[in-house]
Amino acid sequence: MRYPSRPFRLIEQAGEISIFFYLTIIACCRRMPKASFTKQIFKMGVESVPLILITGSFTGMVLSAQTYNQLNKLGAETLVGPIVGVGMVESLGPVLAALMMSSRVGGSMAAELGTMQVTEQVDALRVFGADPIRHLVAPRFLACLFVTPLLTLLADVIGMMGGHVISTNFFHIDAYSYVTQTKAYLGGWQIVSGVIKAFVFGGIIATFCCWRGLVTHQGAEGVGRATTQANVLSAIGILVSNFFLTIFLTQFHKAFLL
């Protein structure tokens, strides 16, 4: 049998990922090991909180400092709060939380499943009557869908708080006007659209990383390669889908909700 050339291999892989995603959705509709799901929620959610707090707060602070420097020239410092708020909630929060999840959780998912694949544990699951997608992928997929929006909301809040601290303490913007201006510009739709994005990003991370883990071969080197590729694939997936989601959600909002 001839091994397919690179372009054909890419098309083949796109097909494999689509089938894998379909099988995962089917598996999520069935009963799955509860203990595994709660364990994943803890690993992905609770253990990621410190990382999200650090990245979220510093991003909010940097955004606030840079925005202030520009708006100060125009005398529009009161807009720092809304820019930081909307920027964090609509785009930076979801993308940042998802990228952090992709590197911390996605890499670990790919490495864990990759190791199970090369040590024949995935084959053992199949031999003893268990579906690897239902046992290994579905709990991770659902946990990722559940946890990414929550971590995104946490990144949003902590980012805005970081921006608030810097703006009021270093740039002497009035705390009351910072909050009221932010409230005036930040609507419910921005929060909802951020959560929708985070939900999709969670799905992208789990699908790409679990799929890459389960197709690992060639021992320890293969596991290393799977981890790297899973991180790169999910990061690209997050950034590209962020663009399309932004366009789609904006059009959707204009067409149906305004």
């Binding site: 199970m116 040590t119 024949e120 053992a124 199949r126 031999v127 009557g129 579906d131």
Partner: peptide, 23 residues
């Protein structure tokens, strides 16, 4: 297919070269 194999494998078992115990 895999679903039919799951049924068929109920009458079979396999001892893996690497033991393949679940870590």
């Amino acid at each position: 297919n895999e679903k039919q194999w799951l049924e068929k494998r109920k009458m079979m078992s396999f001892v893996f070269q690497s033991a393949a115990l679940f870590d």
